[in-house]
């Protein structure tokens, strides 16, 4: 079939809206979509515009979930919507995570802030086939204790993997680890070999996490990162998300560190 795009969204209803943390809401949409964890959609609020959003639900579910922070025009308009209101979606777009490259390995999953959003469907997928993977470490850092997303999921996942949480600065409501997410690496005794890593989070975090991963000898082709760019069109035309030879919307948003070595990706 010829690939084509008319940029028209499909209209779907919001089934449920939940507050995840201050400024972040979870929108559950009445729509079944085949996709790969790590892929994104273009989300429309008609009259406000369109933005790329990574899907945070699992493909097997009969809805799609999006966790969106209120930062700009479209997200502000989205936050004003109520259950039953209609939004538009296009996609899915991009590559998503490559499970064959993670299978059989000990996994280091690093999430910062909203970085847990793309990791969630990946983790759900991994847990469906838990025995296919070795040890799993989830390192999850937030600015403060109120920023942690999906607390119920975290409780469940903790039974099947090593979960480490940290907040950037001390806070009376928090009894756990304090410090940036990279500080956690020193506390963990990782297996000496067969490691693969996935990093999702704010751009500033990547460089420091990669340094830590090098310390524990994760090779460049086994470090995967989900990058954030302004993917406007989703089909490799508009040039907003270009990264050297790559289009983040088509060739990404997930890249191995090896792929990006010669790009100004930071």
């Amino acid at each position: 079939m010829e690939l084509q795009s008319d940029y028209k969204p499909e209209l779907v209803q919001i089934r449920e809206i939940k507050d995840l943390c201050p400024d972040v809401k979870l929108f559950r949409l009445d729509h079944i979509l085949g996709f790969n964890p790590g892929q994104f959609i273009e989300l429309s609020v008609l009259g406000a515009g369109e933005i790329p959003v990574v899907i945070t639900s699992h493909p097997a579910e009969d809805f799609i979930e999006l966790a969106v922070r209120k930062v700009g025009t479209v997200t502000t308009a989205l936050h004003k919507l109520r259950e039953g209101d209609v939004v538009g979606i296009r996609g899915p777009f991009g590559n998503g995570f490559s499970l064959p490259q993670l299978r059989g390995k000990n996994l280091v999953l690093v999430g910062g802030g909203l970085g847990l959003v793309p990791l969630r469907p990946l983790i759900k997928n991994i847990l469906l086939h838990r025995s296919d993977y070795g040890e799993i470490y989830l390192l999850y850092g937030c600015r403060d204790p109120y920023g942690f997303l999906f607390k119920k999921d975290l409780k469940e996942w903790e039974r099947e993997m090593n979960l480490y949480q940290t907040i950037d600065e001390d806070c009376p409501d928090w009894e756990g680890h304090v410090g940036v997410v990279t500080a956690l690496f020193k506390k963990i005794d990782f297996p000496p070999n067969n490691l693969a890593a996935v990093i999702c989070g704010p751009p500033v975090m990547f460089k420091f996490v990669i340094e830590e991963l090098k310390e524990i000898c994760v090779s460049d082709d086994r470090i995967f990162m989900s990058l954030e760019r302004h993917m406007k069109c989703g089909v490799g035309k508009c040039q907003h998300c270009t990264l050297g030879k790559y289009y983040v919307c088509v060739d990404g948003p997930v890249f191995s560190y090896e792929q990006l070595r010669n790009c100004d990706w930071q």
Binding site: Y7, G47, A48, G49, E50, K232, K237, C238, Q239, H240
Partner: peptide, 13 residues
């Protein structure tokens, strides 16, 4: 041919 995408609305919605 770089482009942006914008929504325009009028007073009639």
């Amino acid at each position: 041919y770089c482009f942006d995408v914008c929504d325009k609305i009028n007073i009639r919605g």
